[in-house]
């Protein structure tokens, strides 16, 4: 790339702005502006026709004090946290196993892991509903082994929601962990074995720290979408397992109160921001550490 004189530099700058403009304007208009609107409209009154009135009010925020909400916020948080932990625990061994396969087999195994992720997620949720249905196979199996009585309800409780959340987000956890494991130098694990570390210890003290960046990404892309879950608690959960997402949708579709829905969304947005900032801080720390280690060599 040639900068040329000051004239060339100016021309280059102009070209950059021209080429950046379409995507910048699109994202500004359809991403940044709408996000700002969520916060703005949370302070607007609702009008009786399901629209947004003029002026400013704290009414929607005051409504968040409704005693039903803390319970739902808490449930959203623990379900998302539990989903993230279980997904990571399940995905790390899978990533290890995938990365150690030989190339040809690995490619097909990887496709097999990703394939369910390409099926429509509503379909996957519905499949679980069929499985956990009072007349479904899981219930019959549990009855057969005497683990369950005929009255037990497998659907419409937070545990069913948790199972389906884990199921839906597991591929999201496997992929970044596999990407990290693929770059991991497995001779380090073998070195640990040679030095007398047990298999478990080598796995835990050498492999797991070696894929820390993948763990971080997996945490972010499971936890954040889980916080905003809507369809899973809606189809599997019922009223006793609602999450924030369900309440947002109810405010939009059932009582058509957009400012109230905005206040809930704003709260969710703030909740989402926290893990993202944590991710960026941790990533920065990680990179500094890598640079330092690289410099020491």
């Amino acid at each position: 790339m040639k900068a040329g004189g000051g004239d060339g530099l100016l021309k280059r700058r102009g070209l950059e702005i021209l080429l950046t403009a379409p995507s910048l304007i699109w994202m500004g208009l359809f991403f940044a502006l709408p996000t700002f609107l969520v916060f703005l409209i949370a302070f607007r009154p609702a009008d009786p026709w399901g629209g947004v009135g003029d002026g400013f009010t704290l009414e929607s925020w005051a409504r968040l004090g409704n005693p039903a909400y803390p319970l739902i916020f808490w449930r959203t948080l623990w379900l998302s946290a539990a989903t993230t932990v279980i997904c990571l625990v399940l995905a790390v061994p899978v990533a290890y196993w995938l990365a150690r396969l030989d190339r040809g087999l690995r490619r097909w195994m990887l496709i097999l892991v990703i394939l369910p992720f390409w099926t429509n997620f509503l379909i996957r949720i519905f499949a679980w509903k069929t499985l956990l249905h009072p007349e479904g196979y899981v219930k019959e199996l549990l009855l057969f082994f005497g683990f369950s009585d005929a009255q037990a309800q497998l659907l419409y409780n937070p545990w069913a929601v948790l199972i389906v959340l884990v199921y839906s987000y597991l591929p999201f956890a496997i992929l970044p962990l596999y990407a990290a494991a693929e770059k991991f130098d497995f001779s380090l694990v073998e070195a640990a074995w040679d030095l007398g570390a047990g298999r478990l210890r080598a796995f835990w003290s050498v492999f797991v720290p070696g894929i820390s960046k993948g763990l971080l990404t997996a945490f972010l892309i499971v936890f954040v979408p889980a916080l905003g879950s809507y369809a899973i608690p809606d189809i599997i959960g019922g009223t006793s397992s609602e999450m924030i997402g369900n309440r947002i949708a109810q405010r939009v579709f059932t009582d058509r109160n957009l400012p109230h829905a905005s206040a809930l969304s704003a709260l969710l947005a703030l909740a989402v921001l926290l893990p993202m900032v944590a991710y960026l801080v941790q990533l920065g720390r990680e990179q500094r550490r890598l640079r330092k280690e690289g410099g020491a060599e």
Partner: peptide, 17 residues
């Protein structure tokens, strides 16, 4: 990294406004 429900909600508000 934005949950779908937030993105849908914010776009709905934009279109309504």
């Amino acid at each position: 990294v934005i949950p779908d429900i937030l993105m849908g909600m914010s776009l709905l508000l934009l279109f309504v406004q």
